[in-house]
């Protein structure tokens, strides 16, 4: 998985796996995301959109965390083939 095909988390579809490469956020929100396990290298699974489309629930570090689009747009990385994982 090259860095060239880096996409934001917000574009990842439900059910797909994603590996974080960079968190292009600053300040307290970035620190909060780090604390929740959104760290470079972490694998995130897209679980579920809320009824109105935003926010979206993600599984990270065995917990479920919902993020708004404003945030997931700034977390970039690459898709992982579901076969490749596990």
């Amino acid at each position: 998985m090259g860095l060239s095909n880096s996409i934001p988390l917000s574009q990842v579809k439900t059910g797909e796996m994603f590996q974080i490469n960079k968190i292009q956020l600053e300040g307290p929100l970035k620190r909060r995301l780090l604390d929740l396990g959104f760290i470079p290298g972490a694998v995130v699974e897209v679980l579920q959109k809320s009824p109105l489309g935003d926010p979206v629930a993600y599984r990270v570090s065995n917990t479920t965390i919902a993020l708004r689009k404003e945030e997931s747009l700034l977390i970039t990385g690459s898709l992982i083939r579901s076969e490749a994982h596990e």
């Binding site: 990270v60 570090s61 065995n62 917990t63």
Partner: peptide, 8 residues
């Protein structure tokens, strides 16, 4: 049930 995140 979420030991990894909690252990930090």
């Amino acid at each position: 049930t979420a030991l990894e995140r909690n252990m930090n």
